[in-house]
Write a protein that binds this DNA or RNA. Structure first.
Lengths: 210, 210
DNA sequence: TATTATACATACACGAATGTATGTTGTCAA
DNA sequence: TTGACAACATACATTCGTGTATGTATAATA
């Protein structure tokens, strides 16, 4: 019955995968730990060994989605391109492509897009929001570098540019996640990003938001 | 103990109001019928007298939000303006204003915007979607009338115009509901609608969506 | 005015889910 | 090779919410 360390890691991952599937199909609050356990071919004992409760699994799924994103961005930021905006554009395309090629990541995103952080999940609302802000700050680095290189108007607030990019990506993903017939990420992500960056690169801080 | 008919109607409305508040604060799946009952200063007995279960209350809230909207549109459609597009514009402004002035309707919309129709709510996913489509068809009437009056390009698909309007309104409401600091419905709804209809009225079917 | 059905409050039975306590077996380290 | 502990499975207690059954006072009705 006792498994080796690698086997134990596999069951942990199996539990996470099963939880993701259950949450996606039945929603977080309508899946019991027994549902997850059975779906992973283990018992609740295994689940409680690897996680402290259902909310903990939820948080682990969020970390599993967020961590590689941060890693990719941090790694990309290590090289200082002469054209940070173009570098960022390429990064966005890369990220969207990776999403399109990864159905489980799609499911995870959908889960966090629509979930209502209440009850057991309330404790993670601020934490996950902070993680989002953390990644936004990383994106902002590109615009700051661009401003240092005199590539964009010095009066433009880098944070506004970052928010623009973020809202756009959110809108694209929202449409994609809810009406996947409308948008094909692998096919359209490049043109969508190109279209947006067209505006960002031309930005001279003249446009007013409401 | 026995109440008059009007009093009974009042308690029913009190239960609905209490349910809305509970759902908004704790989420649908994290509020018990006892929560609702206590919040309405009644017992679960009263709740079960007026509604068959929690999901039924949820559906009643949806109907309570949807029905007056439909009524307003149907009533507006009774007069056949010479300029159906302008008529529609005025209607949209009116609807947005009414939303902005009605906090409980705002809460209800937020509830249905973010909810994840799983578990007990799965039965209403299609029904509520159908209700939405029903209102879309009413909106479409305006564009059809405009086309009959040769006010817009005959090649333009009225349904596309309707979808454009719908997506725009959805986007505005989504931003408003989630970041009410960004948009003030009573202050901005007119200019927002004006801006959109600028494009719709000029529409000659030349613009291509992705 | 007597009766009946209404509009609830109260009480009860039941299942489902959770968390924990304990049992079991195999692995690894010494 | 042999304890000791890791990686679970099993069993148990407890809570919570639901649905329903029953009680009850009073408004409507005849």
């Amino acid at each position: 019955m006792r498994k080796t360390k690698q086997q134990a890691q596999l069951t942990k991952e199996a539990i996470l995968a099963a939880a993701l599937q259950c949450f996606s199909e039945q929603g977080f609050f309508n899946t019991s730990l027994d549902d997850i356990a059975k779906s992973a071919n283990v018992t609740r004992g295994a689940v409680y060994w690897h996680f402290s409760n259902k909310a903990d699994i939820f948080d682990a799924l969020h970390e599993q989605l967020h961590e590689p994103f941060i890693k990719i961005i941090l790694q990309d930021l290590e090289v200082e391109s002469q054209h940070p905006i173009k570098q960022l554009k390429q990064l966005c395309i890369k990220l969207l492509h990776e999403l399109g090629d990864n159905p489980s990541k799609i499911s995870t995103m959908k889960l966090f897009f629509q979930c209502d952080y209440s009850g057991d999940l309330a404790q993670f609302k601020q934490l996950h929001q902070n993680k989002k802000l953390q990644s936004l700050e990383l994106f902002e680095q590109y615009f700051k570098r661009a401003q240092n290189n005199r590539l964009i108007n010095p009066d433009t607030n880098p944070r506004i540019l970052t928010l623009t990019l973020h809202c756009f990506l959110k809108g694209v993903l929202f449409e994609y996640l809810n009406h996947s017939d409308l948008i094909d990420l692998t096919a359209h992500s490049e043109s969508l990003i190109e279209q947006l960056f067209q505006g960002l690169e031309d930005c001279h801080g003249t446009k007013q938001s409401i």
